[in-house]
């Protein structure tokens, strides 16, 4: 009986909270709020907050065309794999400071797991055979390279700071980082972590491919790049993956830097986490979206490897000297 119960709980984690269903709702709402806020900033009425949901369900009902030049299997499988990989990441991220599934993946693994949804998109686009997808995947890959350096520096400095404080010298475990913050207050309060937090916030729009950094999906220029040949349900799944990615990355930020503020009650924490994620999205994605124009890919790369990386490096150096 106990086994059945625990496996049901496990399935509940995966499929309902904080897994698939929660991600679905949270991601959709965050994207909806983002679109609404951008519209408000441009003095428009804007779409309803549930607009991403409508988009998603509409796409579910559309015809799915497979181009003659495409590799059918990869073309159809890539979105599903990407979505599943995206949701799995969410399971490893503590809800503020309560880890749900621990002991599976650490910070470095998260860094690599974040590549899988992007890779799924790249391979799906690549399999469609469209030349727009070729250009798009080239830009997407450069975006990934661009964001990788600051992310690496941020993660290493977090690992060092928590390790220093815990006496082990270095700590990659997400649940340990959460436990440390629950005991000693948020990492955000440490002087050495402030630059890392800022850099992380600057990385989020690039990593999710939001507006000034969306050279890979420039719909006016290269027809949404890798998605150019997608229609119907697979396209909807990609849109959903994007939405969840926004939520996942902001939730990762919360878990890494704002860990200490939870109440300890998981459901309440999830609401608080969601609220913080919304605020972060509004400031660092919507605002940036509304006031900037799209960067060229080489500008994007330069921005991340110079400005953002320098900020993250400051944090690493400070953490190295134990501040």
């Amino acid at each position: 009986m106990a086994i059945v119960y625990s496996s049901l709980v496990y399935l509940g984690y995966i499929l309902i909270f904080p897994g698939f269903l929660f991600c679905f709702v949270a991601g959709m709402l965050i994207t909806g709020i983002d679109r609404k806020i951008v519209a408000k900033m441009q003095k428009r009425v804007g779409p309803p907050i549930l607009q991403p949901m409508y988009d998603f369900f509409k796409l579910m009902g559309k015809e799915t065309i497979i181009p003659a030049a495409a590799n059918k299997t990869v073309f159809l499988a890539a979105p599903i794999v990407g979505l599943a990989a995206m949701v799995v990441i969410q399971l490893f991220i503590p809800v503020i400071s309560t880890p749900i599934l621990y002991g599976t993946a650490d910070l470095i693994v998260i860094l690599y797991l974040l590549l899988i949804p992007a890779l799924a998109e790249i391979y799906g686009g690549s399999a469609s055979g469209s030349p727009y997808a070729g250009v798009g995947l080239s830009r997407e890959m450069v975006t990934i390279i661009a964001c990788e350096l600051p992310l690496v520096l941020i993660f290493l400095s977090v690992a060092k700071t928590v390790g220093n404080a815990m006496g082990t010298g270095l700590c990659f475990s997400l649940s340990d980082i959460a436990a440390y913050q629950a005991a000693n207050g948020s990492l955000m309060l440490k002087a050495s972590m402030i630059p890392a937090a800022i850099a992380m916030l600057l990385v989020i729009p690039g990593e999710t491919g939001n507006h000034p950094f969306d050279a890979a999906e420039a719909e006016t220029e290269i027809c949404e790049g890798m998605l150019a040949e997608y229609s119907g349900a697979p396209l909807g799944i990609y849109k959903l993956t994007h939405a969840i990615k926004t939520f996942t990355l902001t939730a990762l930020f919360v878990a890494l830097f704002l860990g200490g503020i939870g109440t300890g009650i998981v459901l309440l924490d999830a609401l608080i986490e969601f609220a913080i994620c919304v605020v972060l999205t509004i400031i660092f994605i919507s605002l940036v979206h509304a006031v900037t124009a799209r960067l060229k890919i080489e500008q994007l790369f330069k921005y991340y490897w110079t400005a953002v990386s320098t900020i993250a490096l400051i944090s690493l150096v400070l953490a190295w000297f134990g501040m």
Partner: peptide
């Protein structure tokens, strides 16, 4: 956009 209209880049969308 208040009706949900959006310009798509590709006819597939």
């Amino acid at each position: 956009e208040r009706f949900g209209f959006k310009l798509a880049g590709s006819p597939r969308h």
